[in-house]
Amino acid sequence: MQLTTIALPLPLLLLLLLFILSLVSAQTPSRGSAQLESVNDDDLLALIRQEKYVVALFTKPDCPTCLNMEKTLIEARDELVDFLGAWVVMAQQSHLMRLYSPNAEPALVFFRHGVPLLYDGPVDEEHITQTFNDNKEPIARELSDDNFEHLTQAATGATTGDWFVMFYSSSCLECQRLGAVWEAVGAATRVRGIVVARADRGGAAAATARRFGVTKDPTFLLFRKGKMYWYDLPKYGIKSLISFSQDWYRNAKSEKVPIPKSPFDDLVAWCVYLIRDVIEFGLGILTEHPWIWQIGVVGFGLVAITSIIAVVKAGKSSSPKPVTKKPSKKTK
């Protein structure tokens, strides 16, 4: 069987080649351009879901510091593409920025398998590439009731080192916004032997949270040499959290790490927390909607008055009536 060849005109071959090259370039990270590729929020979310590494610069117009960071990132882009295969893009006036950074633009975020790390170093090409190369995988460990004591050994002397744990819940929006910040804290403290971790106090680590008396989101606890230190500062900045884990914890409230609770003690603690949460929820509803308790007071008053009137009427109707005897007729 003979194969027949089809001769295509040269212009058509050139068009076909350009089309193939455009498809290939669309599927590979851009490099060599004098500007960063600009994407909208939908495109950025698609990249975060689909690509292994994405470097995103969040900027805004008329921002000199944004332009400086953009220039530096352009200089670092080729190395990020070559060594990481990362997509390096820019998102201007993005609504997603508040999910990853508590500060104003510019914000440089490195996504690893969708997990964000907020860059908090100097505007320097070498420092940026070194930081991202050193933290190619997510840093924060996920702790649960099953593995907490085994991994941390918090109650037995902390032979596995210091652990800095953020207790969170899936319903806590602020906790979600702290994800990139917490990864940045982990990137800075790992060189000091401090392990950064997360624990879902409303889910897999509920019993552990009750063991330590954690009742709010987020809560940060440093476990060090058999003691736990509470981070009570109102701000959750990267530098504040790093400073606390390394030195400032000495000024914070500390407690001896309690041993794990027995099943009965944990059940009692769960009941206490449940009752307290119900009371706090009810008080919160009444504080937010004062008309509810006002209607309740009025309704209770009307019921009380109606009950009193009913009792009084019932008492009157049940009192015995005097019996009058008719005079007997005398017969003559």
Rank of each mutant, 00 (worst) to 15 (best):
I305D: 05
T208W: 09
R141H: 06
T59K: 08
S33V: 00
E288A: 15
V196G: 01
A26R: 09
V323Q: 11
I259Y: 15
N251F: 07
H95W: 07
N135G: 09
G315I: 09
L99F: 08
I139W: 00
V278E: 12
L96K: 06
A304P: 08
Y231L: 12
V268R: 05
P116M: 02
A188P: 04
F281L: 15
R224L: 05
E174Y: 15
C175T: 05
A76R: 05
Q35C: 12
G301L: 15
C175K: 07
E70L: 02
W182F: 09
D42Y: 01
S25C: 10
W87N: 12
V181P: 14
E126I: 03
D124T: 08
I238H: 01
V54A: 09
D43R: 14
E79Y: 05
S38D: 02
A206I: 01
R177K: 09
D42W: 01
A206T: 00
G202M: 06
G179C: 11
L267E: 12
G202F: 09
Q246C: 15
L15N: 10
L14E: 13
L286R: 03
L67D: 13
V323N: 12
F58Y: 01
I128M: 06
I74V: 09
K316T: 02
A158M: 03
P116N: 14
A104V: 08
K316C: 06
N135H: 14
L57N: 13
F110S: 04
L233T: 15
V268D: 00
A104W: 03
F212Q: 05
A7W: 04
A269N: 14
L173I: 11
W248Y: 02
A158R: 02
A34K: 11
A310H: 15
R210A: 11
Q153T: 11
E137K: 05
Y273R: 12
P116Q: 03
K235H: 14
V54F: 02
A26S: 14
V195C: 01
L18G: 10
K332P: 15
P320Y: 07
P320A: 13
M97T: 04
P122N: 13
S33W: 03
S245I: 07
R211H: 00
V268N: 00
E37W: 08
V88S: 10
A205C: 07
F148L: 01
V123E: 04
D266W: 10
W248E: 15
E51F: 06
I275T: 13
L143D: 05
L18W: 04
F19M: 02
R31A: 07
T208E: 06
P138D: 01
G114D: 10
G213L: 03
P29C: 15
K313A: 12
N133K: 10
A91F: 07
F167H: 00
M1R: 11
E105N: 03
L45R: 06
L178R: 09
K71G: 08
V165W: 05
V272K: 14
R190T: 07
I309V: 05
S245D: 15
E137H: 07
T215I: 13
K325M: 10
Q294S: 05
T159D: 06
P29R: 10
N68H: 12
L13N: 11
F148A: 04
G299I: 12
E79L: 09
S22D: 11
P258C: 06
A26W: 10
H113Q: 15
E142D: 11
N147C: 10
F300Y: 11
K261V: 06
F110N: 00
